[in-house]
């Protein structure tokens, strides 16, 4: 009989992140489908009383709280998670794959002699077996499997589940105490922007603009137009409130000493060696590549592409619409229309 623990941490403002409510959906569904399963919640944060009341339908909520748990830090988080699992006697732990948990929960699993999966996209019950699905080889292969070992941590990929609604309720919060070392050796000093340039990564944006190496290449007149490309891309990001992704080859051009878009960094890179962001829409411009790179928009639902090459591998069979055109011209016009509308 599995005991399911839904595990979450608060944000700096004391609320739970959206990804936590998504994991809550997964946990509740599993508890409903798995024969004889029970569900409890475990919360970590400076003060978890308020958010405990937003977990409708969960009767028992365990909490680890205090100033040490306000911040994202391995040593305090791993101790808190291990204590919550032990106290709840949980066998299955469902938690969001936030950076904080991705850092701490593997260690917690190891400490408890358990197993862990991250970036889980589906969890299901088959009889009394729990089955998880996640991607391997950088979103190239998807696999489904089950395990006999417990405890088993399942960290849900942000965006993979519908978030549960956070309605006001009244849960019984049980405080769980944690033995922390006398002195914590790591001090969290704060959040910093990745670059001093314009902020171009917006995880919550409706649309992702993917820029490819074509932007920096020689154009019809035999010259490069990186400044024009930069202002077109930045202009679009602002006007459409879009997030910016880049292909590897565009980012790499920086390392080659070519003139590049100054706001572009490795953090923008999507695809095989970058991220795989989730957005409703994606517009690829000047990209060329195939499977390894195209995984960058694996989790983008509606996809369009602008490319001079009709046979472009980024687009054929992968985008809904391919515009065979010069992206410089089209994007200038798009920005004009968006600006007129704004």
């Amino acid at each position: 009989m599995d005991k399911i623990l839904f595990l979450a941490h608060t944000e700096a403002d004391g609320t739970l992140p959206k990804a936590a409510y998504e994991a809550l959906t997964a946990a509740k569904n599993l508890a409903g489908d798995l024969q004889g399963a029970t569900l409890v919640a475990g919360l970590i944060g400076a003060d978890v009383a308020q958010v405990a009341d937003t977990l409708t339908g969960i009767e028992r909520v365990l909490g680890v709280s205090g100033p040490e748990f306000a911040v994202s830090r391995y040593s305090s988080d791993v101790a808190a998670a291990a204590a919550l699992v032990s106290t709840s006697d949980a066998t299955i732990i469902v938690a969001p794959a936030t950076p904080r948990f991705c850092r701490a929960l593997p260690g917690a699993a190891a400490r408890l002699d358990g197993r862990i999966e991250t970036q889980v996209t589906a969890i299901s019950a088959e009889g009394d077996a729990v089955e998880a699905e996640r991607w391997f080889y950088r979103q190239r292969i998807v696999a489904k499997f089950s395990r006999s070992q417990r405890p088993w941590f399942l960290l849900t990929s942000p965006g993979a589940f519908e978030p549960a609604s956070a309605e006001a309720g009244k849960a019984t919060l049980e405080a769980v105490s944690v033995d922390l070392p006398a002195k914590l050796r790591t001090k969290v000093t704060g959040i910093e922007a990745a670059t001093t340039e314009a902020q171009t990564i917006r995880p919550d944006a409706d649309i992702l603009l993917v820029a490819g190496a074509g932007w920096n290449k020689k154009q019809k007149d035999g010259a490069t137009h990186v400044n024009d490309a930069s202002s077109l891309v930045l202009g679009f990001l602002e006007l459409a409130r879009a997030s910016l992704g880049s292909t590897k080859s565009l980012v790499d051009q920086g390392a080659e000493g070519a003139e590049v878009m100054s706001f572009m960094s490795h953090l923008n890179q999507v695809g095989q060696t970058g991220s795989t962001p989730r957005h409703r829409k994606g517009l690829a411009t000047c990209c060329h590549g195939e499977e390894p790179h195209v995984v960058g928009w694996r989790f983008v639902s509606e996809r369009r592409a602008i490319n001079l090459d009709e046979t472009c591998g980024w687009a054929q069979g992968k985008a809904d619409v391919l515009y065979v055109a010069d992206a410089f011209e089209v994007m200038a016009k798009v920005n004009e229309l968006l600006a007129a509308d704004a």
């Binding site: 077996a129 190239r140 292969i141 696999a143 395990r147 809904d320 391919l322 065979v324 055109a325």
Partner: peptide, 26 residues
């Protein structure tokens, strides 16, 4: 226990728009 492992086949029907002006596409 491994249940499935596959490359998702999600080939899309790509509508190709060519010979349209930049204005129309925009």
């Amino acid at each position: 226990t491994w249940l499935t492992a596959e490359v998702p086949q999600q080939r899309r029907e790509t509508r190709v728009v060519k010979d349209s002006s930049a204005d129309e596409i925009a």
